[in-house]
Design a protein around this nucleic acid. Sequence first.
DNA 1: AAAAATGTTGACCGATCGTGCAGAAATCAT
DNA 2: ATGATTTCTGCACGATCGGTCAACATTTTT
Lengths: 208, 208
Amino acid sequence: MARAGTTARKTRNQMEKRQAIFEAALDVFSEKGLRGATLEQVAKAAGLSKQNVVYYFNGKDQIYAELLESLLQKWVQPLHDLSAEGDPLDEILTYVSRKVQMSRNMPRESRLFATEILHGAPRLGDVLPTDLKTLVDDKAAIIQGWMDAGKLAPLDPHHLIFSIWSMTQHYADFDVQVRSVLGPERSATRFEDAEAFIKDMLIRTLQP
Amino acid sequence: MARAGTTARKTRNQMEKRQAIFEAALDVFSEKGLRGATLEQVAKAAGLSKQNVVYYFNGKDQIYAELLESLLQKWVQPLHDLSAEGDPLDEILTYVSRKVQMSRNMPRESRLFATEILHGAPRLGDVLPTDLKTLVDDKAAIIQGWMDAGKLAPLDPHHLIFSIWSMTQHYADFDVQVRSVLGPERSATRFEDAEAFIKDMLIRTLQP
DNA sequence: AAAAATGTTGACCGATCGTGCAGAAATCAT
DNA sequence: ATGATTTCTGCACGATCGGTCAACATTTTT
């Protein structure tokens, strides 16, 4: 017997297969959702049989859960990197840049989290009210400090962060709508235009 | 034979039952998605039997399709009401108000559309590239006119509309996250705070 | 090479779900 | 009241899906 999924990772082969399944699962789950996707679709996308997928993981839900967990850190990294040491406006604009880049380069991850939260985030457990809240509160305090020091216009830091999340992720999550409304020509530069627009908006807003 | 669903509506009874099913479907579909929800859940929420639901509609997909269609107009109405006649900033801030109100009072509708678009909007057909694009282009032209007249700061009108969509709908679609991050106390006033923040941001941004 | 561990597949099961249909039950028209 | 129409239910079929298990194949270890 094997049980590749339960204990610590072993061989390189196992790591590679698990990674292939993660990749396929990200493709399928982000497009169809957890309930809308089937194990066979994931297996086919990974180039494996359904039973073989179950061999490496212990079921559909576990793939989804581990996938979500493995992506969480990477997802909040840009906010983590927002530093009190740098120039206030620079730090925030850099954060916007990285978030727009993530919408452009990691739209599947964005949609995966969006779908999860949209449906009540039952599988994110209590990560939201603990880890994420702590992180946001921390960074909001930094921003508040900048505002108190007169380096930024006074605004609610939490809602400022929400606005950046929403505006940037919008271009990944609602890409179909964005492209439909912009039309084929203007869609080509939608990410550059979005980044310029959001930065412009924030510069005007945050200027003390 | 009956076929309550295919032809024009008849009795008051049919209208009421269909409305009850719509209400139930909005509840269930917005929470679990089309594929994640079952007919029996919709039926139970509507106080009917599964087969009886099929009697009034001709299947699960038809309920979803008609529900989406019946909500579409209501959903874009605020943008439709944005008028070239009014004061530029007033018109835009009023639009924001109405969008925040919709996030507060119609979160299910917001999540339903969000899920649909997130998954590629296959059932919105070509409404996005035609009707919605036309509407947005129309309103963007009005805003552009205001900017050309020096009444608003020059910005990309399309991305301005996107930013309003994303920021306002964020508080409906990602409500779990917003409440988790804000904590119980601050969550109580999240919609008022959001409206004030977004308006503040837009005022600073759009001031010529 | 033999044995052990790891990897893969085919056959299959139980459960769920959407749907069709005959007919009962209720309501309405005359 | 009688017949027609509408409304509702019981029954059940076919399809799909997640998951199991034993057998087979491959790789690794000794």
